[in-house]
Design a protein around this nucleic acid. Structure first.
Lengths: 207, 207
DNA sequence: ATGGTTCTGTACTGGGTTGTCAATAACGGC
DNA sequence: GCCGTTATTGACAACCCAGTACAGAACCAT
């Protein structure tokens, strides 16, 4: 028995995320968020508790999308596991993949992992942000490690290799391409880096 | 026949760099820089042309130190090349090494490559910063690639591998550890990632 | 010693920022 | 149709910030 809100919180948080990604946290003002989302300052404070609240909730939404997409893209039968890993790696170096069809962003710097950007910018002084970013990484790490295990079961990756170590390494490469991409390197260069990493994965020794 | 400046520009730029690394560019005010360096606003504007000038010049100083240290740490006879690469990799994942003895920083997030942090935060809207950051990367890439070639000549790395590709990959891993370190992962974890990357370097096939 | 020149510190200004508040509008149960 | 409840809007005050201007201090050549 009250007035319902006239906006979709998810849509608003997504627009705010885009703004944070392009301008950074400290480079984004509340007015910027207001313009990007169409909400007035009052609504922003009432619904999301101001700038910092918007950041935390938009990161949470990002986390949720990531936790839904990545396992779906990587899980599956053992036979195709290595190929799924390959495809994920190639997609990831061109921006964090969050949906099956939509390309992440035209500008590679803004396509960098949202969690990574925020962690590097303000993670040192904002433990909440740091924790959220780490959660994002963890959900990816377990999904990748599981895919590596599947590839090992299928005889495509050396069974003696530690799947968790490999997953961490691959994700570190992906996060590294966020940085290298921000330097302005071409997509072709990023693809080449991803292919090199993939090619170095330890293959099983033929007896 | 005029009053000489009472400060050491290099020392000032270094202090400013520390400030930028810990607070980011937009998170650092001119007063912060003033407090960190001891200089008044007037001197800052006269000597470095304000906040943006301080950033550019401190990045240039960082670039100069990097361009001096990295080649020195990686160059040398072919016999020890692989071991030098190993040592550099291990040092690098704990923060950009800029001198032989000094550890980079107690806080891993602030130890991340200065150029990388700035490129991710404001590189999209500041092409000068982007260019400087890319220069930093280039000087490292050529030094690492040269070391890879030396290791290849010594028979420690597969001669069929492309040394430039390997160099890009290794540097991407290092930049990735900057991000993973900012998430709060332990130094042991970062070391483990570096060791995994090193272990996957392609060894020459024994005939 | 003195004057010209450059550094240094501080005060000031115009603009931008955040967070809050009160007035208004919209909705649904009754 | 009315009323309580909640969203929305716009404005407002306190504050912070970048950049400038000016006055004073330090130096060196003469």
């Amino acid at each position: 028995m009250a007035r319902p809100r006239s906006f979709d919180p998810d849509h608003v948080l997504h627009a705010a995320e885009r703004q944070f990604r392009t301008s950074g946290y400290n480079g984004t003002s509340v007015d910027d968020i207001s313009a990007a989302t169409g909400l007035g300052r009052g609504s922003l404070y009432a619904a999301f508790d101001g700038k910092h609240g918007v950041l935390l909730q938009s990161m949470a939404g990002y986390f949720a999308r990531l936790g839904q997409f990545a396992p779906k893209a990587l899980a599956g039968p053992d036979e195709g596991a290595l190929e799924r890993l390959h495809a994920y790696l190639l997609r990831a170096v061109h921006g964090v993949p969050l949906a099956a069809d939509v390309p992440p962003a035209p500008d590679r710097a803004a396509a960098a992992c949202f969690a990574a950007k925020m962690a590097l910018e303000i993670g040192a002084s904002d433990s909440e942000v740091k924790r959220l970013a780490n959660d994002c990484f963890s959900v990816l790490a377990t999904a990748v490690a599981e895919c590596v295990r599947a590839a090992q079961r299928n005889g495509d990756i050396d069974p003696d290799a530690d799947p968790d170590d490999l997953a961490y390494l691959l994700l570190t490469v992906i996060r590294g391409t966020d940085v290298v991409g921000a330097y302005g390197h071409s997509p072709a260069r990023l693809t080449s880096i991803a292919e090199s990493a993939f090619a170095l994965l330890p293959r099983p020794r033929h007896h």
